[in-house]
Simulated scan of single mutants.
Amino acid sequence: MPQTRSDDLAPLSVSGTPEEKFREFLEIRGEKLTEPRRVLVRHIFSSHKHFDADELVRDLHEAGHAISRATVYRTLRLLVEAGLLRELRLTNRSAYEHDYGYPAHDHMHCTVCNRVIEFRNEDIRQTRDAISRAHGFRPSGHRFVIEGVCSECSRAHTPRRRLDLI
């Protein structure tokens, strides 16, 4: 899935690696960091991109890792619960992205090419905080996704007939 990342979304300095944090999370639950889970965490955090479960399964198999689809789905759910990944519910699927070690941000999703564009906007955060204060609410975060058509897809699908412009 193509994506764009703004310069102000560089990784943050964190106290431990995603693998260490996941191991701690699993230990608290009485579970182990198995080799397939370790491979998944290393693969997912080796680059910053948005992906869905099917893309991850395909990428792992292309990299020579024989990890079952069921293990991928269960591990993705655990990584979200652990706060290492964030699930983005898009128009027709769920995508995942790094949560641990990355600043809070929002998204635009092109419904034509599936591109996800990340951005930060202080006005959105201030509006969230003002609304929360007015209602006596303490926010822990928010999810804001703008659905639409990116500039590249808009140019590629420029109307050719005058009636299409209406």
Rank of each mutant, 00 (worst) to 15 (best):
M1A: 11
F22S: 09
V41W: 04
A10T: 09
E118Q: 14
L33R: 09
P139Y: 07
R5G: 03
P103V: 08
P18M: 00
E122I: 13
R115Y: 02
Y102V: 15
E35M: 08
L60D: 13
T17V: 08
E81K: 13
N92D: 15
R161G: 02
T91V: 02
H109D: 07
I28F: 09
H135V: 06
S154G: 11
G141D: 09
L79T: 00
L78E: 15
T71G: 07
F25A: 09
Q3C: 06
H157Y: 10
R120L: 09
P18G: 05
I117Y: 02
R86E: 15
F51S: 00
Q3R: 04
R74D: 14
H61E: 12
S140A: 12
R86K: 13
E87C: 02
L84Y: 02
L165G: 04
T127M: 11
T158L: 15
V116I: 15
T34V: 05
L40M: 04
F25W: 10
I146A: 11
Y96W: 08
T91K: 06
K32L: 06
R155Q: 10
R89H: 07
P18N: 02
N92S: 13
H50R: 09
R5S: 07
F144K: 03
S94H: 13
R5K: 15
P2W: 05
H98V: 01
G16N: 09
M1P: 15
G16S: 15
G30D: 01
L85D: 02
P11K: 02
L56S: 04
A66G: 05
I117T: 11
P36W: 03
N114T: 12
R86F: 05
E20D: 10
E62S: 13
E87N: 06
D99W: 13
L9T: 12
H107Y: 07
A134L: 06
S46F: 00
D8L: 07
D59C: 05
C153Q: 05
T158E: 15
A82M: 01
L26P: 03
S151L: 09
R143F: 10
N92K: 12
E20V: 08
R23V: 09
E35R: 09
H157V: 06
T158N: 09
R155S: 13
V145T: 14
C113M: 07
T75E: 03
I131R: 12
V41T: 09
S47P: 00
R42N: 12
D123G: 13
V57W: 03
S13Q: 14
S6N: 12
P139V: 13
T111P: 01
A10S: 15
Y102C: 00
A130R: 14
F45N: 00
R125I: 12
A82G: 03
P18K: 01
F137N: 09
T71S: 14
R143Y: 08
L40W: 00
A95D: 15
D52A: 11
H107M: 08
V80C: 04
D99C: 12
H135F: 14
H109E: 12
K49E: 00
S13N: 14
R161V: 02
I146M: 09
G148S: 02
